[in-house]
């Protein structure tokens, strides 16, 4: 067990007993990757911060029920997934009523890659920030088994091992999914820019 895990275990034990400081410390240590998972799974019409609030509430109210401290990361990830699913379910009826552009983009990804907006002026892709936005947009359309490790990897401090702990998967699987995700992203980004005559 490394020191991070050791610290986590102590915090989890105390958090389960209702220690507010331990809960806060635990939250701070894990909230970045929680935000990344939310980003990977949220309905597009819901802000990451709003879902973070829900996850925080559930973390406090349910930490007592966590029996195995070693399973904390997968346990917390499942909370995140459930919160995102709940948000998607509660959003669907409203979408039909509102029908705004933003809401139309608000459901879980179907796995199909989203074509570039037709309104987007040709040439702006050269802008680095715009390219980054489009990369993220494309990343969010990858199948969830690929986009999740990809976004977690974007938290530069997360190693393959830590990602494997969160996703409860072998490291080799994480590596393979990351490699596929990157290749899909590059191919799709390349084909989009080529379509616009900018490659």
């Amino acid at each position: 067990m490394d020191r991070q895990q050791s610290m986590d275990q102590r915090l989890i034990e105390r958090a389960r007993l209702g220690d507010r400081a331990a809960q806060q410390a635990l939250w701070r240590r894990h909230r970045r990757w929680v935000a990344a998972i939310i980003l990977a799974h949220r309905p597009r019409a819901v802000e990451v911060e709003d879902l973070m609030q829900d996850v925080a509430v559930r973390l406090i109210s349910r930490i007592e029920s966590l029996r195995d401290p070693d399973a904390f990361r997968p346990w917390l990830r499942q909370i995140v997934i459930n919160v995102c699913r709940g948000a998607a379910r509660s959003l669907k009826p409203a979408l039909r009523l509102v029908g705004s552009d933003r809401d139309a983009d608000s459901t879980e990804s179907s796995g199909a890659l989203t074509p570039t907006s037709r309104e987007e002026p040709v040439g702006q892709v050269a802008d680095r920030r715009e390219a980054a936005r489009r990369l993220l947009k494309l990343a969010l359309t990858l199948p969830s088994e690929y986009r999740e490790p990809l976004l977690l990897r974007c938290l530069r401090s997360m190693t393959y091992r830590q990602i494997s702990e969160v996703l409860d998967l072998p490291i080799t699987t994480i590596e393979t999914r990351l490699a596929r995700a990157r290749r899909m992203l590059r191919e799709e980004f390349g084909s989009n820019t080529a379509t616009e005559g900018l490659a």
């Binding site: 911060e49 925080a56 992203l185 980004f189």
Partner: peptide
């Protein structure tokens, strides 16, 4: 690609990662 993507992810979650636990 990763550098650009990571910058954008950082930007997207920046606010969320400052969120503190509510005081229940």
């Amino acid at each position: 690609d990763m550098a650009s993507l990571c910058d954008e992810v950082d930007h997207e979650i920046a606010m969320a990662t400052t969120l503190e636990l509510p005081d229940f």
